[in-house]
Nucleic acid binder design. Sequence first.
DNA 1: TAGATTGTTAATCGATTAACAATC
DNA 2: TAGATTGTTAATCGATTAACAATC
Lengths: 239, 239
Amino acid sequence: MTDDMYKQMAPLPTIRRLPRYLQLLLTMQADGREFVSTTHIADALGLEPIQVRKDLGHTGIVGKPKVGFELSGLIERIEAFLGWNNTTDAFLIGAGHLGSAVLGYEGFGRYGLNIIAAFDNDPTRIGTQVHGRPVFAMDKLRDLATRMHITMAIMTVPRVVAQEVADELVAAGFLAIWNFTAAHLKVPAEVVVQNEDLSVGLAVLSVRLASAQRQTTEGLSGENDDDTLAEATLDEDDV
Amino acid sequence: MTDDMYKQMAPLPTIRRLPRYLQLLLTMQADGREFVSTTHIADALGLEPIQVRKDLGHTGIVGKPKVGFELSGLIERIEAFLGWNNTTDAFLIGAGHLGSAVLGYEGFGRYGLNIIAAFDNDPTRIGTQVHGRPVFAMDKLRDLATRMHITMAIMTVPRVVAQEVADELVAAGFLAIWNFTAAHLKVPAEVVVQNEDLSVGLAVLSVRLASAQRQTTEGLSGENDDDTLAEATLDEDDV
DNA sequence: TAGATTGTTAATCGATTAACAATC
DNA sequence: TAGATTGTTAATCGATTAACAATC
């Protein structure tokens, strides 16, 4: 068991916070800053310094007591930890509204994701370009994926055909599926599926908003009139 | 402290799983099924029955030993828990690619979210319709929000103007912001911000894929040749 | 130097999982 | 009835937070 193995052992919540650190650090770097402390990061993002320190520790970076972390080294380390220093080529399946929006998202380049082509079964879309990427017919998928050694797919198809498309992706040798569909995909254990279902975020928002409104109402009714109300709200960064 | 208060105390992971249960249950209902057990739900989603039971318990639903849960009642209860039985009206800010995709997303009606108008500051977009919703100029936002009592906003603007737009939303009395921007928004404590940053999902996918590939490589090198490899992969449902 | 900050070890907190009595 | 399933209470696991020595 090598040292590298520990990478995967970072807690999932830590992994989810890393992109936010990265985004902040890049802004700071653009401002000409050279060093940063965990206190500073925590302040900017509304977190606790100890949590930031623990999170950064998982990436293997070491800082300087009293000084903090060298910004450029820290950025490099986070990007390497997330694998964003290498480019990953991907195909996008389903060039509808959502697919088109994903293709138009400019941030992916910075994250090492390169969407090189889209696939669809709508004849009016096939042969066109969407945000500079060619749209091919679905029956070209398998051959092109094999020849170009593409193993990551972004699924932005209607839910009803999601499993069917997933089966095709598996058959074509894909190893990772970023699933923007609400469908629960059944795939072999060796294929990684990352669900990006909008309803999850909406559910959390709905419950948090209801909770906040309940507390406001109770505050007005005089049952609880001190200033603990604001503190009692869920942390906005939890999801 | 009323019984209702306990609603907000459901663990966040539970809240995030509820939409997936709901989605499955609706499919089952469409298939004409009337009862369902937690064992059945767990099997379909690759979870443990005890976890499903605990999650459903948080919504306050009670089942029948041996029989399970009545499907229609369970669906109602989850929807009520998430507040999706009432419609919430919302404005969308930023009618670009992503905003347009969100406007075109058909699933929101079912979740009680009703986007009634979009706002933008691009003159070529103002006055047009996107997926049936009118696009207004940004300077109409405050007046319309006040008059229509809209308190939820969906932000799909470029990152660089995100904070500026958030400030306008706060000034206009909005209480909830669904933030599709990578920016960390600074808002008063009483405003709920739900971040929906694509880079988070990509980060988790990247790390999981790297981990899976590392394990495959090690398996081939003969260091670990039993079948524990598949079991060692992260659960696909964790995020 | 003195003080701020790191990194590590221990304590706490919360979610998941296990065990099992109650029940239709 | 017997057996499957619920709901609750206890045990385990893992992440967060606290404490503090090391250090530039």
